[in-house]
Amino acid sequence: MSDAIHTTVDAKGLSCPMPIVKTAQAAKLVPAGELIEVLATDPGSVKDFAAWTRSTGNSIVEQAEDDGVYRFVIKRA
């Protein structure tokens, strides 16, 4: 395990539920403890990622919004 980003999911411009679907797909290939970075522009992704991580056991370790782009760093359970 390291603090470096293992995988980045660029979901900018994609509408619901694609940011979550693409992240869930990517997460299958990411080992436990590693970090996934997600970039999204769908405002619904804030609540969606909160719900998805709660339900799947993954955790959001960083979250920010800059000029309409949401960035989440998710630790793989």
Binding site: I20, V21, A24, W52, S55
Partner: peptide, 11 residues
């Protein structure tokens, strides 16, 4: 398709 894929993402 949206409802199906969202549910699939939750397992």
């Amino acid at each position: 398709a949206v409802m199906a894929s969202g549910a699939a993402a939750l397992g």
